[in-house]
Deep mutational scan, measured.
Amino acid sequence: DETGKFLVLALYDYQEKSPREVTAKKGDILTLLNSTNKDWWKVEVNGRQGFVPAAYVKFL
């Protein structure tokens, strides 16, 4: 159920650099879980949760 969740689009490829991050490919649609940090947003992609740089994604 996606009610109340926001989707964001990956603008660039991002390769995770730590276990707390997730890899995303340009064009991926990610479920935004938390955007309270202006630099790192928590997302879910391909069943995995983790952080990506906020500058790499935008709201749909």
Score class of each variant (00 low, 15 high):
residue 1 D to R: 14
residue 2 E to P: 13
residue 2 E to K: 14
residue 2 E to I: 14
residue 3 T to S: 13
residue 3 T to R: 13
residue 4 G to C: 15
residue 5 K to R: 13
residue 5 K to N: 10
residue 5 K to D: 08
residue 6 F to L: 13
residue 6 F to S: 11
residue 7 L to Q: 10
residue 7 L to Y: 14
residue 8 V to W: 05
residue 8 V to L: 15
residue 8 V to S: 00
residue 8 V to Q: 01
residue 9 L to D: 01
residue 10 A to C: 15
residue 10 A to W: 08
residue 11 L to E: 02
residue 11 L to R: 03
residue 11 L to I: 12
residue 12 Y to H: 09
residue 15 Q to T: 14
residue 16 E to P: 15
residue 16 E to A: 15
residue 17 K to T: 11
residue 17 K to Y: 04
residue 17 K to G: 07
residue 18 S to D: 10
residue 19 P to D: 11
residue 22 V to L: 10
residue 22 V to W: 02
residue 22 V to D: 03
residue 22 V to Y: 01
residue 23 T to F: 04
residue 24 A to E: 03
residue 25 K to T: 07
residue 27 G to C: 09
residue 27 G to E: 04
residue 28 D to W: 09
residue 28 D to E: 12
residue 29 I to H: 03
residue 30 L to M: 15
residue 30 L to G: 03
residue 31 T to I: 15
residue 31 T to A: 07
residue 32 L to W: 04
residue 32 L to N: 01
residue 32 L to M: 04
residue 32 L to G: 01
residue 33 L to S: 01
residue 34 N to F: 08
residue 36 T to Y: 10
residue 36 T to L: 09
residue 36 T to P: 03
residue 36 T to D: 15
residue 37 N to W: 07
residue 37 N to E: 10
residue 38 K to Y: 05
residue 38 K to H: 10
residue 38 K to E: 11
residue 39 D to K: 12
residue 39 D to F: 15
residue 39 D to G: 08
residue 40 W to F: 05
residue 40 W to S: 00
residue 40 W to Q: 00
residue 41 W to H: 00
residue 41 W to C: 06
residue 41 W to S: 00
residue 41 W to N: 00
residue 43 V to C: 10
residue 45 V to R: 05
residue 45 V to T: 08
residue 45 V to D: 00
residue 45 V to M: 06
residue 47 G to M: 04
residue 47 G to Q: 03
residue 47 G to T: 05
residue 49 Q to I: 15
residue 50 G to T: 02
residue 51 F to G: 01
residue 51 F to Y: 14
residue 52 V to Y: 11
residue 52 V to T: 01
residue 52 V to M: 11
residue 53 P to W: 11
residue 54 A to W: 08
residue 55 A to H: 11
residue 55 A to W: 12
residue 55 A to T: 11
residue 56 Y to R: 02
residue 56 Y to W: 08
residue 57 V to E: 02
residue 58 K to E: 14
residue 58 K to F: 09
residue 59 F to Y: 10
residue 59 F to S: 10
residue 59 F to E: 09
residue 59 F to H: 09
residue 60 L to I: 13
